[in-house]
Computed example of a mutant assay.
Amino acid sequence: MTPDDRDPSVPVVNDEPASRSSHVGGPTTPEDADIDAPTADTDAHRDTGGKKKHMPLWQETILLLAIALVLAVVIKALFVQAFYIPSESMEPGLIKNDRILVEKVSYWGGGSPQRGDVVVFEDPGGWLNAAESAGPTNPLAKAMAKVGLYPQGGHLVKRVIGVEGDVIHCCDDKGRIEVNGQPLNEDDYVNHPDQVKCRGPMTGNCEWTAGPVPAGHIFVMGDNRNRSADSSAHLCTDDETDCNQNPYVPVDLVVGKVFVLLWPADRFGFLHRPDTFDDVPDPEPTG
């Protein structure tokens, strides 16, 4: 049969048989058409695929503030807290209104203050007057103080001189404080060491002994020995017949150890325990 013999009413598609598996020219069966045909659902998915809705700016701001507040509370409670120096008692190293950072990690897990540490502690009772205990008065400052973002009132900053069992004596023939019989070389941090009769209390009394320090307590002194109402200033003297002062600070009231002088910026630096305390022997056992 030749091409001329074909019925002209029958269209000619191809002289070769079509492949059953070929889809190049489109679906060959109704089932194939159902599978390949795009639907409204798939088109919508393609239009929105990979895109996420963002929360409004005000919601993001509130969320970030909430996260920052939680972090501040956690950091204050467990790690670091800001304070300021309330008086001249720690000069020359720390000056009134200096901003400091206190770390709490050193006293975790049963750790306790060591001789030579500069510590911040709550008022043991009667060491501060009403104004010194008040803290910030501005509402914003008060709120920031509660979460550790602003210095609080009602705290003191002193250096630990004696720990549990220690006996502190003032003074040897050179005017030096002795701890368990070992004189301290405090020239590096005591204010004007050459201008004081002895390194004792602000009262000028160079003959006193404190201790043994009770368990769970510390004996503290300011570096400015003539301007520090510290443990030595709260000792009961020999001529006092009715004395209820307590010179020792409970360890439970210690917030932490000062490790950074933060502000002013030109005096920024880290605080370290003086080497002289390494020579202090352990206290004599009691009982």
Rank of each mutant, 00 (worst) to 15 (best):
D5I: 10
D7K: 09
S9T: 14
V12P: 07
V12Y: 05
A18W: 15
H23N: 13
P27T: 02
P27D: 12
T28A: 12
D32E: 10
D32S: 05
D32F: 10
D47V: 12
D47Q: 12
H54K: 15
P56C: 04
P56T: 09
L57V: 07
T61D: 06
I62M: 02
L65I: 03
A68V: 01
V70Y: 01
I75V: 08
K76Y: 00
A77M: 09
S87M: 04
P92I: 13
V102F: 00
G111A: 01
R115Y: 08
D123Y: 08
P124E: 02
W127D: 05
A145W: 06
L149A: 03
L149S: 07
Q152L: 14
G153Q: 00
I161G: 15
V163S: 15
G165H: 00
V167I: 14
I168V: 15
G175P: 07
G175E: 09
E178A: 11
V179R: 03
L184K: 08
N185T: 10
D188I: 06
P193Q: 04
D194T: 02
R199P: 02
G200P: 10
T203Q: 10
P214M: 12
A215M: 07
H217G: 04
V220W: 01
S231W: 00
A233I: 03
C236S: 09
D239R: 15
D242P: 06
C243H: 14
Y248F: 03
L253H: 04
G256L: 01
K257Q: 14
F259T: 08
L261M: 13
L261S: 15
L262D: 14
L271P: 02
L271R: 09
R273K: 08
